[in-house]
Design a protein around this nucleic acid. Structure first.
Lengths: 356, 356
DNA sequence: TCGTAGTTGGCAACCGATTGCCGATTTCTT
DNA sequence: AAGAAATCGGCAATCGGTTGCCAACTACGA
C-alpha cells in the first residue's frame, strides 16, 4: 500500500486547474492572478489567492519555464571550487542572486577547458544567464556562449561581453612600488596558468610598472595556481635567486614561501613575496602574506547584478538590448609580514633538486 | 535588423518536430530514438541520429522534465560556502554528480535556518534529490523535506533519512588519547553552534573518552564556527585557563590560537589546541594545526552517489524503495605542531577583556 | 438612447518532450 | 499456409503553466 512513499506520490501538489475548479473560474484567471496582477479584478484575485493559499498551491517552475524560458536559474562556472579565491565570490553571487529571486547552479570545471565546455553545454539550456568566473576558454568560445545566453565574465575583460574584474594593473603597480620602496631593484614574477587572462594582465602590468621605476624583472613559470605550484616555483626561484617575487596568486605565493623556507631562505629577510587576491588563510599563514586584495565578494555580487539587469533589459523587446558594460573594481595592497627591506647580505640557498 | 541579438533569437534550436519532418517520421520516433534506443529500428534510428546531428538538435531538458520530472539537477544546501569545510565536499559532490550526468544546484544559507528553508522551498520543485550538508534544521523539518524528494544528510546521522558523516566519536577519542598521552589531565571543549548536530556528538564523545581516561573536561561556548568565534573562545579560555583545548572545528581552533598568542600564551608550550576537519589552511597556519581530518572529498562524493542510487532505485516502481542507509566514514588524527607535552611551568596570561 | 472605450474572464493554442495504445507489417510456428 | 507472436511507427493525450484573442459586461459621454 504505502505508496505515500513512492516517487510518484512525491510529485507536486495542487495545480492552477485545481485552484480554478475550487474557485469556479478558468485556469487562465488563476495564472494571471499570480503572473499578471492587476489584470484580474481585485476581489476575484483576492479570493483566488486565499483559496490557493489554503490548498497550498505552488506554481510549478518547470511548467512555467517551458513556454517562457524563465527558469530563475543562473549558472556560475568556476575554475576550481576548492580554490579559496572563489569562496567569497560565490558568497557574493549567492547573496545577489537570492535577493533577486534567482538560484545558482554552480559548476566546478577543475581548471579544464574541456570540462568547462561540457558544463556550459549542460547548463545553458536550463539557465537564464551565465557568469564565467575565471574562464580558461578562448575569447571566441566565450562569445559563442554569450550568443546563447546573457553572459558576464568575471576576472577578465572583453570588449563585446560584459565583464567584472579587479583592477589588476593598479594593484600590480602598487605592489611594485611597495617593493621598490623597500629597496628591491629586481623582481621575479611567478607566473600562473598560461590560459589565464589575469596572468597575462598581471605580468604585463608588472613589466610596465618596473620599466617606469627602472627595476629589472624576470619571469618564471607557468605554474599551476596551487600550493604545489608554489612549491615548484620556489625551486625554480632558488636556481636563479633574487630578493623579491610577486606571485600570480596567493596560493602560489603561500606555496612558494613554504618552499623557500624549506630550502633555507628566510622570508622576508632574504626574499620578499607578494601575492594576489587576499584569499582565506592569507592572514594566518606564516609570515602573514602581503597581497593585493581583490574585492572578491563585491566582484561576485556585481557580476550577478549586472547579469540580472541584462536579463530584465532584454525582456522589453522595444529596447535595443542593454549595452555591454565592463567594470574594474579597485584592489588595494595589504602590507603584511612577507615583505621587508632588502637584506645587506644574502643567505646561501640549499641546493634545490634539479629541474624536471 | 540585428535580431540575431534579441532574447527571442536566443531561444533554442531545432526540436524533435523539426528533426521528424526532415526525416519523414513522426516526432515520437525521434523521441524514442534517443530516450529508448532499441525500441526503434536500427536503420531508422541511425538515419535520425545522423540528421539530428547535422541539424544540431539537442533535447530541451525543460520539456523533458515537465512530464517525467527528470531534471538532472541535484540540490546541495550548504551552511556557509565561505567555510573551507565545504570546499572539498563540494568538489567531491561535483565530481560524483558530473560522472552520473547530474548538475549541482548549490545554495548557501549562511548559517540561517530561515534561509535554509527558503532555499529548500525554492530548489525542491526543480531538483530530483537533495543533499543537506550540515543542516541547522530540526530532524522533523528534514523529514518533511525528505518526503518531497529523496534526501541525503551530510555530517549528521538520522534514523529515517539516509546520511553520511565522519566518525566523529572515533576521531574525538583519538584526539583525547593524543592529549592524554602528552600528559594533559584536563581538556577544554570550545563549542560550536548549539544547533549543530556535530557539535553535540563531538562534545558527548569527548566526555565519554575523557571519562574512560580519567581526565577532567570543561566546556566553553557556544561560539560561531568562524575565526572570530575562535578569538572569542580564546578570551573565554584565558579567563579560566588550562593546558589543552579541543575546538569544535578548525576555524575556531585557528582563531583561538591567534587569540591566545595575542593574549601572551605560547602554543603549544602553554596550551595545546586540536581542531576538527583539516580544512584548507590547517597545514600552513602557525603553528600548523593538529586536527581530526575528515575525508571531506569522499564525504561529498558518497553523499551524491547514495542519492543517485536512491533516485534510480525509486524509478522501478516494483521495488519497495531503497532502504535508508547511514554511513560513517573514518577520520584520522593529523598530529602537527599545535599540540605538545604539558608544560612544567605556566606562562601568565595577560588580562583579557571582560566578558560581554 | 446609442456608440465607444475600458474591464474582466474564458477559450484554446502553445512550449517540447514522453509514452500508452493501436494497427500494420514482418517473422516464426506448426 | 494459416495463425500467433514479435517488431516498429504513428496518433494523441499529457505534464502545468502562459498568453493572444475574443466576447460579455460596465461605464461614460454625446
Amino acid at each position: 500500500m504505502s505508496d505515500s512513499e513512492t516517487n510518484a506520490a512525491r510529485r507536486s501538489g495542487p495545480t492552477i486547474y485545481d485552484v480554478a475548479a475550487a474557485c469556479g473560474v478558468a485556469p487562465s484567471t488563476v495564472s494571471r492572478t499570480f503572473s499578471r496582477p492587476g489584470r484580474v479584478n481585485a476581489e476575484t484575485a483576492e479570493r483566488i489567492r486565499r483559496v490557493a493559499a489554503e490548498m497550498g498551491y505552488r506554481a510549478n517552475p518547470l511548467a512555467r519555464a517551458l513556454p517562457t524560458g524563465r527558469t530563475s536559474l543562473l549558472a556560475v562556472i568556476v575554475a576550481d571550487v576548492t580554490n579559496p579565491f572563489f569562496f567569497d565570490i560565490l558568497r557574493g553571487a549567492e547573496t545577489a542572486a537570492d535577493a533577486a529571486g534567482y538560484t545558482l547552479l554552480v559548476a566546478d570545471v577543475q581548471e579544464s577547458v574541456d570540462a568547462e565546455r561540457r558544463a556550459l553545454d549542460r547548463a545553458i539550456p536550463m539557465v537564464e544567464g551565465v557568469v564565467l568566473a575565471t574562464s580558461r576558454m578562448s575569447d571566441s568560445s566565450i562569445r559563442v556562449a554569450a550568443k546563447q545566453r546573457p553572459t558576464v565574465v568575471l576576472n577578465r575583460s572583453m570588449t563585446d561581453v560584459s565583464s567584472v574584474a579587479p583592477d589588476n594593473a593598479r594593484g600590480m603597480r602598487r605592489a611594485v612600488e611597495h617593493l621598490a620602496g623597500l629597496g628591491h631593484t629586481s623582481i621575479t614574477y611567478l607566473a600562473g596558468p598560461e590560459a589565464s587572462w589575469a596572468d597575462g594582465i598581471r605580468w604585463q602590468a608588472m613589466r610596465e610598472a618596473a620599466y617606469e621605476l627602472d627595476l629589472k624583472v624576470k619571469r618564471l613559470g607557468p605554474f599551476p595556481p596551487t600550493q604545489a605550484g608554489g612549491l615548484a616555483a620556489a625551486q625554480a626561484f632558488a636556481r636563479s635567486p633574487g630578493t623579491a617575487a610577486i606571485a600570480y596568486n596567493d596560493l602560489i605565493a603561500i606555496g612558494a614561501i613554504r618552499g623557500m623556507i624549506r630550502l633555507g631562505a628566510r622570508v622576508p629577510q632574504d626574499v620578499s613575496v607578494v601575492g594576489f587576491d587576499n584569499i582565506f588563510g592569507a592572514d594566518f599563514c606564516t609570515p602573514a602574506l602581503t597581497t593585493v586584495a581583490a574585492p572578491l565578494r563585491h566582484l561576485g555580487s556585481l557580476a550577478v547584478e549586472m547579469l540580472i539587469r541584462e536579463l530584465r533589459g532584454g525582456t522589453r523587446r522595444s529596447e535595443p538590448r542593454t549595452a555591454v558594460r565592463s567594470m574594474l573594481l579597485p584592489s588595494r595592497l595589504l602590507e603584511r609580514a612577507s615583505t621587508g627591506p632588502v637584506a645587506r647580505r644574502r643567505r646561501t640557498w640549499r641546493t634545490p633538486p634539479a629541474a624536471a
